[in-house]
């Protein structure tokens, strides 16, 4: 879907595992001060044991990246300047989207093989090697981090998914 470019829009993408239902995906688009603009959430995807064996190590990438991540990003009507995720598995959505996707973790959490930088007390792994793109992303995130704790909107997504299960 073609979406209008909106520099002041940011995407937050994550997934929530439910023991009974499966994996829910949530994608929240916010403005530069964190106010919600769009929210998209998937029905749960339940993976069978046979599928786990069949897909093997490729399962997380397929499930998070293609099934949930790519589907959700495709539903957004606004193109965010950057998509943030708190799940490393969700980075596998990168081949399926033109949007820059970064991994946000608490500073000092470590563990990512990608180059990282610090923004607003969070560690950001952006992937890629294009220095100018890295700088652009950093600027966007620094703008957002003025008013928004970069890890906070994921909590909102989780709360909304919990609410959806109760509803």
């Amino acid at each position: 879907m073609e979406a209008e470019i909106a520099d002041s829009t940011y995407g937050f993408l994550t997934a929530v595992e439910s023991a009974t239902h499966g994996l829910f995906g949530g994608y929240l688009l916010v403005d530069s001060v964190g106010r919600p603009l769009e929210f998209h959430c998937t029905a749960p995807v339940k993976v069978s044991r046979a599928q786990q064996i069949l897909y093997g190590t490729t399962l997380p990438g397929h499930l998070h990246g293609r099934q949930i991540g790519a589907t959700l990003l495709g539903e957004g009507t606004l193109a965010p300047a950057v998509v943030l995720t708190d799940l490393e598995a969700m980075l596998t959505v990168r081949p399926h989207t033109n949007l820059p996707v970064v991994l946000v973790r608490p500073a000092g959490a470590g563990g990512s093989a990608e180059a990282t930088f610090l923004v607003g007390g969070a560690s950001v792994s952006s992937g890629g090697s294009d220095a100018s793109l890295q700088e652009t992303l950093r600027q966007h995130l620094e703008t957002l981090a003025i008013t928004v704790d970069l890890s906070e909107p994921f909590g909102r997504i989780r709360a909304a998914i919990e609410e959806a299960q109760r509803h």
């Binding site: 919600p36 603009l37 929210f39 998937t42 009507t77």
Partner: peptide
């Protein structure tokens, strides 16, 4: 196979 995309509910504000 996990081929068909999951159903998505969308909300705009």
């Amino acid at each position: 196979l996990l081929t068909s995309p999951p159903q998505v509910n969308s909300f705009s504000f």
